[in-house]
Amino acid sequence: MATVSMSVNGKAVTGSIDPRTLLVQFLRDDLRLTGTHVGCDTSQCGACVVHVDGKAVKACTVLAVSLEGASVTTIEGLAVNGMLHPMQEAFREHHGLQCGFCTPGMIMSAVDIVNRRGNDLDEKVIREDLDGNICRCTGYHNIVKAVAAGAEAMGGQSMDQKEPPRQAAE
């Protein structure tokens, strides 16, 4: 067993885990944060996307033990004090989800796109940057609309609201 400490959604957590535990297993099985999903075995579908130190990663392809001291944000940590994140709101408003299974990964990826590329996103950029997220329900049409609208809405808020506040892991 190995011990790992990290910050998850602003809370310090410590786990005693088998080193082979993937981040997604740590989140789902140990922390019972089941919003992060597993949809494939080959690091392609993106249902498991979370943010590690502010960057979108596939939680199915990261060892939890390797994230000592890291700051992790999952879909459960995106809304702050019950206020939905603008990207969550945009997915609801634009019907960017149907069965909901890919949705947490989609939203986390979408926030990451905005973090990297800013608030004014054209359709081509959004479609290319959703390369690592597969949805079987929506045909992406409304996801693309939601991401564009969510990006714009994120521009309307102050920078410190873009990522939820984090607590140092130390």
Binding site: G46, V57, K58, D112, I113, D129, G132, N133
Partner: peptide, 9 residues
């Protein structure tokens, strides 16, 4: 290379 998430790791 890969997708944005892959490029982050």
């Amino acid at each position: 290379i890969g997708d944005p998430h892959v490029r982050h790791r």
